[in-house]
Design a protein around this nucleic acid. Structure first.
Length: 255
DNA sequence: AAAACCTCCAACCGCCAAGCG
DNA sequence: TCGCTTGGCGGTTGGAGGTTT
């Protein structure tokens, strides 16, 4: 992929220039999304339809978020991936401002390497024990004000207004709350590690096997997808608790 | 200071499904 | 029904920039 290479048809490939971005933006503002094949005709842009569509979806579209994924975005991604697999567009559709490419890239660079490492190094725990101990101290961290994750009925994560997160739990509903302050980074590691633990949990494999035997894979998946779709509000934002995402069709009671 | 190595992510590729004549 | 076109998706690549040696 050279910056200004072209294919056999004379179509330009590689990185987009500001001028090309402007042409594409103008086209979409005037004609709307779709009809990508008409772009070269109407704008003189020497790019193939696929390239135009991708550029718009992954870069030029309004409201695309840039920068690191937040802790709640990663948490949601992990859970949705567990439910949906590598269906990046579906996952991205439920993380506002993130594109399928963003999600896929993040997964491939941050999550997958750890997953592979854990798979190929069964003695990872021992190695960690032998490694020099690092004390992880809570660090001040700015988070989005809109963060309001509902984890479950008896465990919540909220901002304390001072930049740190508070994890609270109400064990057994007896009004005895355990509250601890944790940094988002630690939470993130917790969640990723928890996910990876679950991923290789033999019992879970058995359960999934049961689902496929009982319903057929497509049926279980469709049911799960419907559950997610029904919860989507008009703005494309999700309106369900994380426990609900993890609802298992095998469970007798839906949350 | 510079070479080697690593990480990230924008962009490309090939495939598939839907729509249409 | 068949073949073509188009939109869309997931997997992969490779260049840019950062980090380490």
């Amino acid at each position: 992929m050279t910056p200004s290479s072209s294919n056999g048809l004379g179509l330009k490939k590689g990185a987009w220039s500001e001028h090309e971005d402007m042409l594409l933006k103008d086209y979409v503002e005037q004609y709307g999304e779709g009809k990508w094949h008409l772009i070269p005709l109407r704008t003189g842009l020497n790019r193939c339809r696929k390239s135009c569509r991708l550029r718009w979806l992954n870069y030029l579209r309004p409201n695309i978020k840039r920068g690191d994924f937040t802790e709640d975005e990663v948490d949601l991604m992990l859970r949705l991936h567990k439910l949906l697999g590598n269906r990046w567009s579906l996952i991205a559709g439920r993380i506002p401002g993130r594109t399928a490419n963003d999600v896929k890239n993040y997964w491939n660079t941050h999550i997958q390497p750890r997953s592979k490492q854990q798979k190929t190094e069964p003695d990872a725990d021992k190695l960690l024990q032998d490694a020099p101990v690092t004390n992880i101290n809570p660090q001040p961290h700015t988070i989005s004000e809109t963060l309001n994750l509902s984890m479950s009925d008896n465990a919540q994560i909220v901002s304390n207004g001072g930049g740190n997160l508070i994890r609270s739990s109400n064990e057994g509903g007896n009004n005895n709350f355990n509250v601890s302050s944790v940094s988002p980074n630690v939470l993130l590691d917790d969640k990723i590690n928890k996910y990876l633990d679950d991923l290789f949990d033999d019992r879970e494999m058995e359960i999934e096997g049961d689902i496929e035997r009982s319903f057929g894979e497509s049926s279980a998946q469709a049911e799960a997808l419907n559950a997610v779709d029904q919860k989507e509000d008009n703005n494309g934002f999700f309106d369900f608790s994380l426990d609900e995402i993890m609802w298992n069709p095998m469970d007798s009671q839906q949350p």
